[in-house]
Design a protein around this nucleic acid. Structure first.
Lengths: 342, 342
DNA sequence: TTGTAGGCGTTATCAC
DNA sequence: GTGATAACGCCTACAA
């Protein structure tokens, strides 16, 4: 197995020119003669020359590499955002590496360190649930590595952010429940260490007040990762109450779907006995029966916007702009879990 | 914003030692005195020294970087496999970059080129549907970059492979349909350019023959990406037949779920009128109602196995082993879409 | 136990 | 237009 070790130096020897000429010719530098350029390109191709980006990166102090840190890549919201990031990044000549934290603070810190060592040109991150200290992100400023946070963000980092208005989204969802006649609205909340779940809880409360519904702390259940299991357990808790709620706003689709399944098993009808709303408009929301009313948070577009913002920061480096915040639109998708199909 | 430009050279100057001593101390080389080592580590920490992996990679000719090429990262099967790869790779000190082809041959070729330039230590790939020429992967041998294919593989590449026995899995699925009494079994096949879908089709045929059911070409529909839309369309085609099938084996879960939804809309009962089986045991199979019988193909474990195999090849480089093939177990998960809950 | 020196492959800066 | 040369930051024989 022949190791492909042909470099600019060999090319230079073979063609009797200097490596500078090779380098310039291969990247179409204007000052190289037509014929030499063609000749160089041809032999490079014939000999199977492959540029060594590692060397180039070292010399140029640029890697064209964007690091992405997310909680779990097998959750649709995240994989979908990554997909958006990847698309924009590739278009602009960057490649993307992925780190999943599984919501662990330790893994998040390690990921940032690896990316700093590897001289990523920029980082896009969605914070782990466990994370409260964010000094690992602060270090990035010293290395002049731009950072964009998306979805689960922090305001005290001075970093750029891409997110939806979770407060508004939750408000819309709960207002919808009230408008269709729900009087006792429960909320399955996420981990409040995270900005988004805090905002969703606030939006829930505000919508209730707006509709003259008293907030009943017993109707608010505090989850963590909002898995299927959590959804199931919370559903049972709510359905066991003697005075059962007639509507529930779940902070994600998975727990909402799980809620619906539990309700069905217990012969509780959705939406006539209890209306259910999820969050994110993931594929399961359209697969569950009754189909789930939910908030579309446009994960793919959030990914795209994050990548565009990051690349702008990498390339322009406008000293005047400290940070930028982009709010992506969201919308309530009404389906049968809140409004019976006629 | 101070650019963090502290290198071993500065450290050396400050501490009045040579860079070799710094280098050795930081990686606990045995021949360095206890005190010097401690002193060096302490000042490195204080001054916020960050090793430059790019330089180190160039010098060591090793990047600790694994490239992963998959069709679409927002499909559960793939994101789940990536999750497995990431877990094993990180454990072993490698980081993972992701390239999605969207099933395009062109994007696949480009991805391989970028990974070669960036001197990835190895590549894990799941072939794009469009791909038939695989010379881009052949070049990897010249650069001595190990390759592991998973799921959608090719035998003529001489590369290591991780896959399930799709033929057996399909056979099991269709045999199950026959055993529960289906006489007219249809198949929604995937793109036959891909090894897995060809094998699933063969397994389907074999199971029918084994159960003395004549193969009816009209009952085999050939899909491409097996999206929701394709599933819907095929469902209508099959349900429109005057002599309607009583069982259908779909080559993935998405088309199966879509089939069930279409059947419900048309008041066709699953499983009593028609039994349905999917493939992959993705989350939707448990969300759809009736719950979908499917094949669990253990995507996460396939990812783990692929990464382990690749890393073994990177690190051992046993000249005697040309390639290795690992078959991951699969199992039929029987749910209500084939056997009514009592 | 520590230092010297050369090179990994590319590219930017000067020269000519 | 093209070439010589010196970095980019780190690692590792080989010396001492």
């Amino acid at each position: 197995m022949r190791k492909n070790r042909i470099t600019m130096i060999e090319l230079a020897k073979i063609l009797n020119v200097s490596t500078s000429t090779i380098s310039r010719a291969l990247k179409d530098h204007h000052s190289i003669g037509e014929e030499t350029r063609e000749k160089i390109k041809k032999t490079a191709l014939n000999l199977g020359y492959i540029p060594n980006s590692v060397a180039s990166n070292l010399r140029r102090r640029k890697t064209n590499h964007i690091g992405v840190i997310v909680p779990r890549i097998d959750r649709y919201f995240h994989s979908s955002a990554i997909s958006g990031i990847e698309e924009v990044a590739n278009e602009a000549g960057y490649y993307v590496s992925i780190f999943q934290t599984k919501d662990s603070y330790k893994k998040e810190v390690e990921s940032v360190e690896i990316l700093m060592s590897n001289k990523a040109d920029g980082i896009i991150a969605c914070l782990a649930l466990e994370t409260s200290n964010v000094n690992h992100y602060r270090q990035l400023a010293n290395s002049a590595i731009p950072l964009v946070l998306f979805d689960r963000v922090r305001d005290d980092l001075g970093a750029s952010k891409v997110l939806i208005n979770d407060y508004d989204a939750a408000f819309k969802a709960c207002d919808h429940l009230a408008k269709i006649g729900c009087k006792k609205i429960a909320h399955i909340a996420g981990n409040l260490n995270s900005s988004i779940f805090k905002a969703r809880l606030e939006g829930y409360k505000a919508a209730l007040l707006e509709n003259n519904i008293t907030i009943d702390e017993d109707l608010i259940l505090y989850g963590n990762i909002l898995s299927k299991e959590e959804g199931h357990e919370f559903a049972n808790q709510l359905l066991d109450m003697k005075s059962r709620p007639d509507g529930v706003f779940c902070a994600n689709d998975l727990s909402a779907a799980s809620f619906i399944q539990t309700a069905l098993i217990r012969k509780v009808l959705v939406p006539s006995d209890i209306a259910v709303i999820g969050f994110s408009n993931t594929p399961i929301s359209n697969i569950i029966n009754p189909a789930l009313t939910t908030i579309d948070d446009h994960a793919f577009e959030m990914g795209q916007a994050s990548a565009r913002l990051l690349i702008k920061q990498i390339e322009n480096n406008d000293e005047n702009i400290v940070s930028e915040t982009i709010i992506i639109r969201n919308e309530l998708i009404v389906r049968e879990s809140t409004v019976s199909a006629k």
